[in-house]
Computed example of a mutant assay.
Amino acid sequence: MIYIQQAILHILDINTNEPIYSLAGLDITEKFTLDYIHAMIEKVEDSDNMKEGTLPEDSPVVGMLANVKDDFVAATRALTDKFYGITKLNYEIPAADLLFVQFTLDEVACLGMFKLNYSDSITHHVSQEDDTLTNHLIVNRAILPSARQAIQEGMVLNLESMQYHVLEKKHMITELAEKRFYFTEMFLEDEPKPSLKENIAMIKKAVQKTSKAFNDEEFVALAETKQALVHSMEEENVIDNQVVADRLFGDNYAKKEKFFQEVEELGYVDRAPAEVAVAGPKFSKQKLRLDNGIEISIPMDLYQDAEVVEFINNPDGTISVMIKNIEKIKNLF
């Protein structure tokens, strides 16, 4: 249960020499505002791109939050100053507004910080000179994301444990001449754990390398990997590396050793929280693209049903796919 206590919006327009600070909070009695804030919180909490970490006691951000419950406006202004000090020096970081929210999540005190990047939109403008009224088209360059749109950067921070959930995107840092995750590296000054999406990508890459090392069919290994991931997420709400390895390689200890070596080198975090629902609908199906251009989408629970689909290894080294027992075909045009 989310209970919104207060919220404030500060403007980081790079065309100004300093942030435009709000001296008062948003009106959270308005349903539109409440719905928007709820949507921002859920976009961070329900994303497979979400990373988590914990701020150390000596973190500058922790110091800025010492009085956040007593002086919300001043604390958010200090955070805005630190954030603006980074963005104003790096022109490729998009201009934005910062939305701060103090709330409780399941009765735990939290702070939300959401970077609302600007986008362009066309609107009309009416002018009148003498007796001539003219309608014009103009570009509004400070349109904020709607409640339905994804956001690139945002954070939900547990004010008791200082554990945070964050969405972020790499941007070019002028001084370093390279793209960095500036939100965590430069603003939070911390390194979070990989996201669910990143963990899954590491598992996939490790399986590909293991398959190549042992001359296994990659498409078979990846299909089995997806099933193993779904099983682990459904059973334990985590990705258990051991469960994945057992389902993929059984008693083949050489393959397991190679797989474990690869995931460790890639930075995978074992038993990190994970849910199939968060991982996305792509985990409900096995999707295959054949080298002749044909694409096949098979529901996960039917993929290994020999009465529905069969993969046949031909003597010439090619593979045939047989789809069986079809009663009716519908064109999805």
Rank of each mutant, 00 (worst) to 15 (best):
A7M: 03
K285S: 12
L144S: 09
L266T: 05
L288R: 08
A24F: 11
F333M: 04
M40H: 11
K204N: 10
V230Q: 07
C110L: 07
F311R: 13
Q149V: 00
L157P: 03
K255S: 05
D97P: 13
Q6W: 08
P273H: 04
A24K: 13
P273S: 11
D71H: 15
V308R: 15
A147H: 13
P273A: 01
D46G: 06
A150H: 13
Q286I: 15
I20M: 10
L89G: 04
Y21A: 03
A24P: 02
I20A: 12
V238P: 06
I296K: 06
K51Y: 11
E175W: 05
V263Q: 08
K115N: 08
E52S: 13
E295M: 00
I173M: 08
V308I: 12
A277L: 01
N325I: 03
L105C: 12
L111V: 01
E262Y: 13
E18N: 09
Q128Y: 10
L89D: 09
K31C: 04
A177I: 02
Y36D: 04
N331C: 02
K212C: 02
K204F: 06
T54G: 04
L133N: 05
S127M: 09
L188Y: 03
D240Q: 01
E265L: 08
E178L: 13
I173T: 04
E52F: 13
D251H: 14
G250N: 03
V276D: 06
T134G: 03
S146D: 05
N331V: 05
V220N: 14
N17R: 13
D13A: 10
I319Q: 15
T80D: 01
E57C: 05
A7V: 02
A277D: 06
L144V: 09
L55K: 08
E185P: 06
Q304S: 12
D97H: 12
A206M: 04
I329T: 10
E224K: 15
T184C: 06
L229S: 10
P60T: 00
K69E: 13
L248C: 05
L116E: 00
V321E: 12
D97N: 09
D70R: 14
F219A: 10
Y3T: 10
E198M: 07
N237H: 12
N117T: 02
T16Y: 15
D251S: 11
S161C: 05
E129N: 14
H10T: 01
L34E: 12
L167I: 02
F114A: 00
E235F: 10
A39N: 02
T104S: 15
P315E: 06
G85M: 07
E257G: 09
V230K: 11
D251T: 11
V220Q: 15
